Simulated scan of single mutants.
Amino acid sequence: MQIKINETLRSYIEPLTQAEYTALEQSILQEGCRDALVLWQDVLVDGHNRYQICQQHGIPFKVTENTSFRNLEDVKLWMIDNNLGRRSISDYQRGVLALRKKEIMAARAAELVAQAAAEDAAIAPPEGDAGKRVPAMPLTSREDIARAARLSSATIGQIEKIQKTATPELVEAVRSGTISINAAATVASLPEAEQLAAVAGGKKELQKAAKEVRELRAAARPAKEPKEGREAAATSGEGGYGRPATEVDELRAENAVLREKNAALREEITALQKRLSELMGAS
C-alpha cells in the first residue's frame, strides 16, 4: 500500500521538539517500530514521525486502518482525543487541542440544529415552537473545555487570550516553556511591538514585562482598606511574608489556578469511578 500524507493532518498536532524527535529515533533504531501506524483508507493519521524515521532507516513497520472515520472532522477529533490521552504533552498543548475540539463539536451541533429545524418545518405547522428538537451543544462552556483538557477554567481562559492576541513569537515562547501560560497571557495584552521586544530579550525580559503589566493593573485598581493585621505590610509596600505585593499577587493567582486544576481532576476521578461502578454492575 502506498501511504499518503495529508499536510493538514500532519501539521494538526504540535510537532515534536528536536530533542523529542531524536529520542524517538533512538528508540526505534534500538527496539524497532513497536506501535502500528494508523491509517484512514490510505492516508496516514497517526505516526508521521515514526513513518519518517522508518523510511529513512529502512525499518519495517505495521499499519492498522480505522474504519470508523466518516470524514476529515472525524479524523481530527480522533487525533485530538488520542493526544489528550497522552501524559507527555504540555498544559498549553492540552488547552489548544480542547479548544479545537470545541470548534468542531460546536460546528456539528449547529448543523444538527439546522437539520432538525428543517425537518420540523417540513412536518409541523409553522406557528409555535412546540415539539422542536434542539440537540445539546457540547463543550459550550469554559468548564467543559477545561474538563476535557484536565486543566482549570482560568488556564483555558488564558490560553484563549494567547491565541487571540499573542504574536507567533510569544506563542512559540509558551510552547517551548520559556514563559508560563499565566505570564504569557499577561504579556499578550501588550502591543505587538512590545511583545516582540520582550520575546527578543529572553526569559528575564518576558518576566519583567509581565511584572510591569501586573503592576500597572494593580495601580489602576481602586485602593482597598487594609485588613486588620496587614497595615504594616501595606504601608511598607509588601504583600505579606516579606515579599513585594506584586509577587504575592502572582503567587496567589498561581495558587488559584492550581486549586481549580485540582478540582477539575477530582471531578474527572469521580466520573471515572462512577462509570467503573456501572460497568462492574452490568457485568
Rank of each mutant, 00 (worst) to 15 (best):
E238C: 04
R86I: 09
E65N: 08
I179E: 01
L84W: 04
V213E: 09
E268F: 09
G281K: 12
A232C: 03
T8R: 12
N262P: 00
A185W: 05
P15G: 11
P168H: 02
K101L: 09
A218C: 06
Q93T: 05
A233P: 00
R243W: 07
R86T: 09
L99Y: 04
Q207H: 08
G131R: 06
V187L: 09
E260T: 05
Q163M: 14
T270E: 08
A154S: 15
A253N: 06
E250M: 07
D129A: 05
L84R: 06
G58N: 14
D129T: 11
E65R: 07
W78K: 07
V43K: 15
K102H: 11
R243N: 04
K208W: 06
Q273K: 13
A19C: 03
E14A: 10
A124D: 13
V174K: 12
K274Y: 10
E103P: 00
G157V: 04
A209M: 03
T167C: 05
Y51D: 02
A116T: 03
K164C: 05
A136Q: 05
E160G: 02
E278C: 05
V187H: 02
I181P: 01
I162F: 05
A218W: 13
E20S: 10
T246D: 08
A122M: 14
C54H: 06
K211W: 03
A121W: 09
V248E: 11
L84E: 10
S88Q: 14
Y21F: 09
P222H: 13
S153T: 11
D91N: 12
E267S: 09
E267R: 12
E143A: 13
E119F: 09
K76N: 04
Q41S: 07
A107V: 07
E228Q: 13
N182L: 11
A173N: 08
K208E: 06
P168L: 10
N49K: 14
L206T: 01
K208I: 04
A124Y: 12
A233G: 03
K102I: 00
P138V: 06
S236L: 12
G58V: 13
L9G: 02
L24V: 00
